[in-house]
Design a protein around this nucleic acid. Sequence first.
DNA 1: AATGAATGAGTCTTCATTCAT
DNA 2: CATGAATGAAGACTCATTCAT
Lengths: 191, 191, 191, 191
Amino acid sequence: MDDATTPKIASKPRPTKDRLIRAAARLFSNCGYHGVGLAEILAEAQAPKGSLYHHFPNGKSDLALASATWASDEILLLIAASFEPADGFADGAESLCQKLANLFDAGGKWSGCPISSTLLEGPDNAQFHRHAAHLFEGWIAEVEYHALRLGLGKDEAAATAQSFYILLQGGWQLARVRRDSAVIRTLPALL
Amino acid sequence: MDDATTPKIASKPRPTKDRLIRAAARLFSNCGYHGVGLAEILAEAQAPKGSLYHHFPNGKSDLALASATWASDEILLLIAASFEPADGFADGAESLCQKLANLFDAGGKWSGCPISSTLLEGPDNAQFHRHAAHLFEGWIAEVEYHALRLGLGKDEAAATAQSFYILLQGGWQLARVRRDSAVIRTLPALL
Amino acid sequence: MDDATTPKIASKPRPTKDRLIRAAARLFSNCGYHGVGLAEILAEAQAPKGSLYHHFPNGKSDLALASATWASDEILLLIAASFEPADGFADGAESLCQKLANLFDAGGKWSGCPISSTLLEGPDNAQFHRHAAHLFEGWIAEVEYHALRLGLGKDEAAATAQSFYILLQGGWQLARVRRDSAVIRTLPALL
Amino acid sequence: MDDATTPKIASKPRPTKDRLIRAAARLFSNCGYHGVGLAEILAEAQAPKGSLYHHFPNGKSDLALASATWASDEILLLIAASFEPADGFADGAESLCQKLANLFDAGGKWSGCPISSTLLEGPDNAQFHRHAAHLFEGWIAEVEYHALRLGLGKDEAAATAQSFYILLQGGWQLARVRRDSAVIRTLPALL
DNA sequence: AATGAATGAGTCTTCATTCAT
DNA sequence: CATGAATGAAGACTCATTCAT
């Protein structure tokens, strides 16, 4: 019920484009790009049939790109919110894993990584592939930035950021398989 | 189940059922369950249209289950081949990562984990989910068995096997994103 | 429901939905629900393949229900046209049988009862069964109404309407078997 | 060939061919020729897959012809059993309707006329059509024979037999629609 | 006389997309 | 900005049949 970033006075009922992006992100995370039909997305977003191509001229692929970007930005906010108030890298990592585990639990314990499900399982497309790589490297870069800021050396920071990314992806997947977020919470110990 | 593994005179041009399973495993790994059509699988396997439902009465889902099982068995063989001749766990892990990296390179550097792509991105089905969990836990159990055999303590073996699994899944995914197997080869250092 | 019956300027080349319903009614009458493929209906109606599910979201079954309703309405019109100008019940029955015999001859002498062929020979479905019962009872009720109006007593009217229905169904079937409408014309004598 | 009529001592578990015919007759009566698949018939008859084409070289159509003939013969037996011990035609007709109503009730109150469902709703085939006509005229002839035997005049017998046929077909259909055999039992009163 | 694996044309249906309004 | 009717390619699946055994 929180309306975006700039709540003026009479909060609009959240614009159609936004509802579309959020619905797509949620559904793609659960079933993959090819596993979700536009009809399903439109139903979930309560958007009229034809309005999709107004906001996303290239249709499904445009929507997928946008929803992956949106989901990635949410993760970046989570990273920032975890590391900025942290006393050290370990502290921030701990905090991030807690947040992600809660997110996993809230999503029904069955959602995959939103970027991965949307772009990697999508059409074998150069654009999709590059966008996925771009977003993922953005996560790693963000973590690396905080690692440096929190005192790690240059090489150590890079290596740690990458390792953390690997653990998060692998851990999230195992959590999904087990439908149990416990694994995610144990990841910081492995760093 | 079947005698496919013991060809009597090794002369048959490999039975249709086998070709179907291998083709499906390869294609599902690349594009996910929903991303591959039966026509594509049939074409790749050079199998006639109607013969699929002869071998797999429940159609695509049966084929997916069978191909995931087959792919999982291949991995189990790889694990055994890596750890059995090894002098220690670290040695075996090193060997396994090399083998997997080579497999990744051979597969065009774009394939996902065959079980994950096939079953987790498939229909949100209890049977699929349970089968995936069963196969994955089999991998972890197999590694744990070798860890114990090679001298690790009970608790350490269990923890190490799970961590290794997490690293492999996360590392393979990052390799896929980067289309570069280098990450996979660096995983043993993280254990 | 629809405004198909009130064409504003009577210029449109008859809408697709209408052509679909008429084609379906004709073909189902001849070959039964399961004996006609959608391809055949689409071809006869000169309608593009995908447009069927636009007008009939549930596909073949929706189309069958609609075409049976349409055919039933045509029969009701025939009943009204026969009995309204009639001097007595016998006169109206005579007229109706003549009209039905002509209809039978015009249809190639091979069509079955449109409701029966479409709904009774369709999937063993509660909805189909109830709809068929509803339509048939509507015929009987309509005849009964005219019987009352034309002077028959309450009980006699009900019995006569039902008997007439039975004779019409049985007579039409025998006419079909013999490919000869003669039987239908002799039915009034049996009342 | 068929030892059905001469059960020796240890009654065989009824030959495959027979089971096939009976299963087909039952299923076709309920769902029509096109509404039943061979797989369903084979399952119901507990017959092995390939054995059908051994007994019925022309496949489904041969089986349909045979099952319609068998069902028709059963009806002829019923007619004979009703009229032979009868004191008059009315008595025999009454008896036959009772027997048919019981048959209808025993069949789940949803079966159609076995010949009609099998042959008239089958492929628009000259052979099917002629066979149906032949069988139906056989019923009428049998009733006419008994009518003559029981004292009706030549013309009256012919007319009565045909009327009775019409009432039976129409009445059975209405009983099916209402899932209630009551109508069938009231038919004699209409003669 | 009997079997069951193999076949490909056919089934109904859903898909992402375009168009006129 | 927004709509929903219209489209045909593609989807998964079932069919009656044939064949070698």
